[in-house]
Design a protein around this nucleic acid. Structure first.
Lengths: 201, 201, 201, 201
DNA sequence: AATGAATGAGCTTTCATTCAT
DNA sequence: CATGAATGAAAGCTCATTCAT
């Protein structure tokens, strides 16, 4: 169905080292994104990693566990990125810009495939695991909401933070379907446009 | 494992009659959305429709064909909805508002599941079929772009129509993940907020 | 490992008709006895039955279910045989002889393989299923004990019925390991010897 | 899935020292008896012994070899026990009693699990190895038959020694399925009952 | 049209065994 | 001797699809 990539051709992924576990996760993120979780076979995955399919199960107890690990790592790494964005700015507006920029990077940069997996394969998770990740995402979202709360008090945004976040977040997430980093528009330009859409006036 | 719905409990879907084909598509949209295309078995699907799995293949040549039919119908029906939105308004701004409103309805109304399938199961299609649908979507998108082109000339929006459409479209599409029609906010209110985000000034 | 028998070469089994289910059970009894439950593969089993391995799962939900079905049928059929033995005799001693004869037949006759499976593959069952069958066996054993109780009152046996039954039952069950129906000794002769061992004096 | 025992909680086994080999055999006897040979994994076995699975293969060439070793040791040790039983008595009847007592001990005492493995996992052996052990068992059985031959000449038993041995042997072996050493009946009492069943008059 | 038994390829996972360290 | 990562064959089971009825 697909001409098989080898792991070396795949981009590095933020937060993953070159351990067997990391290599599996990197390949998994790529394949789950490309073919979907259900349609990706462990044999394909093993082939891309360059090991035998049975060997996968030394590193992960099940295929499900691999999906979970990819998603968890994506959240964890990008939560840190978000925290940095806030920490490195004091001005609220600059913080929002930094948050937008950081999230665009999550989605279109080195963790892009993992983030796409997080979104598009969400239903492939068991409810238990969805709940587990939901807790992690709650913390991630709280970083946004804390800043937006302040922004509203300062009159920088005019809609309720929750709604604002959902709509702007949607616009950002959706870039995964069309934005090409190698295209004409830079991430900074895109950041500015989104910021203008969100700003009052 | 799954509490099985019967077809009668499933919402009607815009554009589908009660023919066997229509009944299958309705059930398919629901199941593909709920469990994913790959994870939905033809047996499950047949059970929800209330026939035997073998009988499905009298109405569709393959499981793939069912997915295609659901997506095609979603595009076709909602393209008509978009054309109406434009036709019923002459003022450009009102047309944009009507387009936003129409798309929100596509996604959160009676064709919502089918639209979600269109987005989330896109990769399950073969490239041939993706191309086929892409042509239909191009026409759909052109309706938007024609109006936005004019809007830019009239100074109603300040960013390039293509980018504007992607970002606002993302915000709209994303509502599928959080908007609850039975919640506090009406679709009209949501339409207004999105319109304000998109408007110049 | 084994030259494969075809189903036609396998003896009929008491209580089983020629339905697909029955054919599978017959082959399963043979293979589980010959190679053990764990070492018998569903592919082997299917091959003996003359169907594809996947088709087995139309008739039984799992390999475990096949084992259970074989055992259950063995108990059910031989319980009926025991009831007949009692019903066809009024004299207590003759009833005991008939019971011994019936059990020898269960073990060395047409249900022999199934009975052997019941004994030797008992641990392959889940605890739930063991309990389920244990209930059926309790009824089977009660038929014995009712007669033995009376026998003790009549002075026909001198040891407690429970112990008597266990020891004589062991002697009978063990015949599976050495008795050859085509050998010199008939089942009737064997019955007499066992009866003499069990009788008082 | 299984509550894992550690080797220290397992009873000592007659004839086995505390060498690595002995420790493995002790654990193997326990696990093969509890779960069956085929269902016991070398990892489980290694875990109970307290080593890594790979290390097992320094002591035994294969899993099959472990099974063989357990069975061989059981026969060897209990053959010695039988020889002792004969040697310590001159009276034929007392010898028979001693043999019954010794075999009951084999089965319900410290070599019980190994003996059970010998019986219940017999089919798991290759034919070669069955033949090898069969030769050892032949010697074991000959001890019985020599005494029984004499017993028949002395009029102590009335049935052919071979048949007598099979039936009484069955009764004895079967005790593994029901006799509880901690219960009300002692092994001596059980010995007496079996002896009475076997004796002429 | 509808059925439902049968297919057979392909799935995830297990596991005895090997071997470089 | 011991480790434990890796192997690779084989296991039980699933499932879209076919077809005789």
């Amino acid at each position: 169905m697909l001409e098989m990539k080898s792991l070396e051709q795949l981009p590095q992924m933020g937060g993953l080292d070159d351990s067997p576990r990391g290599r599996v996760m990197r390949a998994a993120a790529y394949l789950f994104r490309e073919n979907g979780y259900a349609s990706t076979t462990v044999r394909e995955l093993a082939q891309v990693v360059g090991i035998q399919s049975g060997s996968l199960f030394h590193h992960f107890k099940s295929k499900d566990d691999i999906l979970l690990a990819v998603m968890e790592e994506a959240i964890r790494y990008n939560t840190a990125r978000l925290e940095q964005a806030v920490a490195q700015n004091t001005d609220t507006l600059k913080q929002i810009r930094a948050l937008i920029r950081a999230e665009l990077e999550s989605i279109n940069g080195d963790t892009g495939t993992a983030m796409a997996v997080l979104v598009f394969e969400w239903d492939a998770l068991s409810t238990d695991r969805q709940d587990y990740l939901l807790n992690m995402r709650k913390y991630y979202e709280q970083i946004w909401l804390d800043v937006l709360e302040r922004a509203q008090q300062e009159g920088l945004i005019k809609h309720p933070p929750f709604i604002w976040r959902r709509l702007i977040g949607g616009a950002i997430s959706w870039t995964v379907t069309w934005y090409k980093p190698e295209g004409r528009m830079t991430l900074d330009q895109l950041t500015n446009i989104i910021l203008q859409m969100g700003k009052a006036e």
